[in-house]
Design a protein around this nucleic acid. Sequence first.
DNA 1: CTTCCTGCAAACATTTTGCAATTGC
DNA 2: GCAATTGCAAAATGTTTGCAGGAAG
Lengths: 120, 120
Amino acid sequence: VAKNEKLVLQIIEKAERPVSVSDIRADLAVNKTTVYRNIEKLLLQNKIKEVNILPHITHYESADLPHHHHLTCRDCGEVREIETRELEDSMQKLEKKMMRIGFAVEQHNLEFYGLCQDCH
Amino acid sequence: VAKNEKLVLQIIEKAERPVSVSDIRADLAVNKTTVYRNIEKLLLQNKIKEVNILPHITHYESADLPHHHHLTCRDCGEVREIETRELEDSMQKLEKKMMRIGFAVEQHNLEFYGLCQDCH
DNA sequence: CTTCCTGCAAACATTTTGCAATTGC
DNA sequence: GCAATTGCAAAATGTTTGCAGGAAG
């Protein structure tokens, strides 16, 4: 396992919120190409996941985290993880329904946007 | 109301699935800057909505459509609208819970990805 | 005449690719 | 020595901005 691959993974795992490529580069003095390539490897190994907490900038988080979704403040950008246990039941029912119409759901992406307490 | 603004809106409204800027440009021979600027106006007037059916390419759809979400095939890219009425109840409960912890949810974004019948 | 709209070129941001140099077994 | 990893420059996308010309009222 290459050194930078390990370092990129560590940065993603230790962060308390999803990180972007530029977040990683702020912590690790390597070429951006190297970052992208290591992210690709980590995605293929299912060690990290892509998340879309904001349009146009892909963020990544550890794949070891329990299933959850995000709450992002449109003002300060704060990101909070949110438990959606109740929702997952209805979600699974829905996905089974989709299966019956021939669509095999592999993934869902749920993001909440709004204003946090401080910005409100 | 400018001519191109109206034309962009018509393209978005008549499409049966969310369209990207390049989809619009394939139908309308105007500069890309014009498309982006008209989209911005239409968003401000709440006539259209941004949707993230795929990473890295913003799509738009009419804001007149009833609230719904999308099912996107990762192979052929087919997009289907999906009723999520059951889900919206649990979703609203969740959003009220978030409100109680001081987070005012303004929007949620829910996308499903998988394989359609043909690609399966 | 004045405001709004458009096109063009250039800038920007994110991501990808080709190639040559380097590292590590 | 060979395969995997890296850096650099360049390209490919998607999006934004400044400016000048043209359309519309």
